[in-house]
Amino acid sequence: MSSVFTSSIGKKLVMGISGLFLMMFMVVHLTVNSLLLVPDGGDTFNAAAHFMATNPIIRIIEPILAIGFVIHIIWALVLTLENRKARGSDRYASGNKSTGVSWASKNMFVLGLTILAFLVLHLAHFWVKMRLTGDDLLEHVTVNIAGVDTLVENSYALVNATFGYLWIVIVYIVAGVGLAIHLTHGFWSAFQSVGLSNNIWRKRFTVIGNIFAWLVGLGFSAIALLQYLFYQI
């Protein structure tokens, strides 16, 4: 058991499992984000954000999520470096003309870097302000949660103001598309790496993965764009 994580298959297992874990996070994140589109001045979103900020389970999962990201990124770096070495120093002069190999599968690291660059910006926009430095826009508002008037941070105002900048919205759209392409390979590949695939299920995972990837990727993009277009005061 000791050598499993240092073996090639073990390293891919780590990538697969951490990837699936991050995908689950994406679903939760997108679900909460979709509340940004409820046209009630952000009350529903603020209530959800309050719930996420105060729920002890979320508090426990947050550092685990951070570890998940770190592991996925470090292992990706290690695997990429090892694979470059295994390829050898001589490249093919006649290039690579194999057909039927998805572009995403060959560019997972570059796509990952794009997502990482976005993640840094994204954390600076929201996480840092909400959790560390605070922001004037976050001033408390009263929201009626299940019949009880509760004082919560006005997260909606911060999100709404951030998505008032066109360049930020464009960055979010690009990152959403990058994420979608990353996941078109990542989804089925994760199942392949943990050994849960065969000729029938590979096709199913690929189809489900493509739908999932574009739903998640374009979902994030669309919410940012709709906020910019229709929700600015």
């Binding site: 298959i9 891919k12 695997l79 694979n83 295994a86 690579n96 190999v101 599968s105 392949q192 790496s193």
Partner: peptide, 9 residues
């Protein structure tokens, strides 16, 4: 040898 990344080439 390198690690498989499921490109399918």
């Amino acid at each position: 040898f390198g690690n498989c990344t499921n490109t399918g080439a």
